[in-house]
Design a binder for these strands. Structure first.
Lengths: 132, 132
DNA sequence: AATTGGACGTAATGTCATAACGTTAGCTTG
DNA sequence: CAAGCTAACGTTATGACATTACGTCCAATT
């Protein structure tokens, strides 16, 4: 993909691992998957993740301490993504709700709060796991 | 109506510690503060926190791995709280936005997702820290 | 050539959370 | 009461997640 062009080797490996998985992975799981590619220490993964998070290619799921490739890597709407996380199968749906964003921005501006990063995560069970 | 169970000694100590702090604390910080009261192991704190979370007296802040006493312990609106967390001073404002809750519930129902717990956290800088 | 800055490699450590074990205290029921 | 049950407790050990600290490499400037 062209979006990988300016990535370093480690960054490309980490992003590739997440994209291949199609679901959230912990930093240590990523590390395990990349041992054969020469990665040996957590910091190599965390450093790559930091850059990928900065550029919006990867999201962090705070409630499960995991990372996931962005579903819409070309829509530069960082910080505004919301996630539905299935606790049974691990599937994650990334979505974005303008109304939610607007309400949170309103609260912030009404209270003199300057937001830098927002987390919206719903944990539960996905349709597939509910047997339908 | 479950929520008015009497607290055990450890639960009361942990809740007291959080209330006294008036800001989020990590489990290990709580433990340090309660050593003189006889607590010695992380599990004693985590077990108490589990019960306090269940009963809605305490919230967990996923994005900073910390816990905070509920600001409105008598409004049985669990799972629906949102938080604005100041990354400079640590202050946390708990609020609740019906529109946000409604939009997230709508997304869930449209996608056959059964939500069990929702996290909404804004990190940034509070009015006081912005010098205003 | 010298300098600089970003990414890298490695080891050690720090921070957050739970597993697994047995024990204690309060309840309830014959 | 005694037997049995259950929820909470205490302790040790371990697992899981993340960063500090230090030095090296290399390519782009100056």
């Amino acid at each position: 993909m062209t979006s990988h062009q300016k990535l370093t080797r480690n960054q490309a490996l980490v992003l590739g691992s997440l994209e291949k998985a199609g679901q959230p992975l912990s930093a240590y799981t990523i590390l395990d998957q990349l041992r054969d590619d020469g990665l040996r220490a957590p910091l190599q993964v965390y450093r790559a993740l930091d850059k990928l998070l900065e550029s919006g290619l990867v999201h962090r799921l705070e409630s499960i301490n995991a990372f996931v490739a962005c579903s819409h890597p070309h829509s530069h709407s960082h910080g505004s993504a919301a996630f539905a996380i299935c606790e049974r199968c691990g599937r994650v749906d990334e979505f974005s709700d303008a109304v939610v964003q607007k309400r949170l921005a309103s609260w912030s501006s009404e209270h003199g709060f300057k937001p830098s990063r927002t987390t919206v995560e719903i944990r539960g069970e996905c349709a597939a796991c509910l047997g339908n």
